[in-house]
């Protein structure tokens, strides 16, 4: 199986690092960025992810704005939004803007890896 490359974008450093380690234990290649700006700056130069796990609420740029910019410049990258409050917090709007899915925090690791596999399959099957 190909090694799936992930980028976690979340301003909560401890959350991002613990989740990254858990995903690495499950054989994913994981990078982390702690702001939307950092993620956008590094995309295509530092980070080459297949899938981005993107927090919806961050102080510098909202996940929603980051999503729009990612989809403008890198439409092939699948984005899974991580949100505290689902539909009420913009989760469903992010789907309209091209996110593959949104997952509620705290994250269930089995649900997340299942969604990552689906997103990767979707990415590789895209024309």
């Amino acid at each position: 199986m190909d090694e799936i490359k992930l980028l976690i974008v979340d301003d909560e450093v401890e959350f991002a690092s613990a989740l990254a380690e858990r995903l690495e234990l499950r054989n994913y290649h994981v990078d982390t960025a702690n702001s939307g700006t950092e993620a956008l700056k590094g995309l295509g130069s530092t980070y080459f992810p297949d899938i981005i796990l993107l927090d919806l609420r961050m102080p510098d740029m909202s996940g929603f704005d980051v999503l729009v910019k990612i989809k403008e410049k890198h439409p092939a990258i699948e984005v899974i939004m991580l949100t505290g409050h689902g539909a009420s917090s913009g989760g469903s709007s992010s789907l309209e803007k091209g996110a593959f899915a949104f997952i509620m925090k705290p994250v269930n690791i089995c649900d997340l890896t299942k969604k990552i596999q689906e997103a990767y399959k979707n990415r590789t099957s895209a024309p």
Partner: peptide, 19 residues
Amino acid sequence: HELKNHLAIINESSGLMAD
């Protein structure tokens, strides 16, 4: 929202311990 952030961190940390 802040409370949920803390819970998410505790969740990942305890999940990592389990792993």
